[in-house]
């Protein structure tokens, strides 16, 4: 079959396929290790500081967010994401990265119309869908 007769389909043989298995494995291991780090932090907060489980979970999430924001600030998070893929972006750290990266990128447009306006450019999707879905479920729960 000639390439030009059926370009949209025939061109696929020339396009590099993402290495599905390797990418997923990388995401699995990096994401898993980040969660182990979170679990270790939680244990440390409970045993070392004597806080309750719920408080320790909050502290753990705040630590992960701070770490992600710090790494983004010094320009290392995007390098990590290129390796880990969803292992870096599908976690809470990826959400923090999306907020701070957008805020940093638009600081050149000023503090209100730049940083504040654009902060949720990427991360907003997670918040909007989370709230809409949770709200609808809440309404259903209340009615029932």
């Amino acid at each position: 079959m000639r390439l030009r007769d059926n370009y949209q389909k025939a061109v696929k043989q020339f396009q590099p396929k993402p290495p599905y298995v390797v990418n997923s494995l990388k995401a699995f291991v990096s994401g898993g290790l980040l969660c182990v780090l979170g679990e270790a932090l939680k244990k440390w907060y409970i045993n070392g500081f004597g806080v309750s489980q719920e408080v320790a979970e909050h502290w753990m999430m705040l630590t992960v967010i701070s770490l992600a924001i710090l790494l983004t600030g010094i320009g290392m998070y995007d390098t990590f994401s290129q390796f880990a893929g969803a292992g870096a972006t599908a976690l809470l750290s990826g959400f923090a990265n999306s907020l701070v990266s957008a805020a940093m990128e638009h600081r050149s447009e000023g503090w209100v119309s730049g940083v504040a306006n654009h902060m949720f450019k990427i991360g907003g999707a997670a918040i909007v869908y989370g709230i809409v879905v949770a709200y609808v479920l809440g309404v259903v729960y209340y009615i029932m």
Binding site: P18, Y20, N23, V29, G31, G32, C35, G38, A86, L91
Partner: peptide, 27 residues
């Protein structure tokens, strides 16, 4: 923790690679 967290990330990665969804859609 490793297996559950890793599993979610692995599935998310497969979704990004195999479908037309971007990572924002997947998240």
């Amino acid at each position: 923790a490793f297996l559950v967290g890793g599993f979610v990330c692995g599935i998310a990665q497969l979704m990004i690679d195999r479908t037309n969804f971007s990572q924002i859609h997947v998240i």
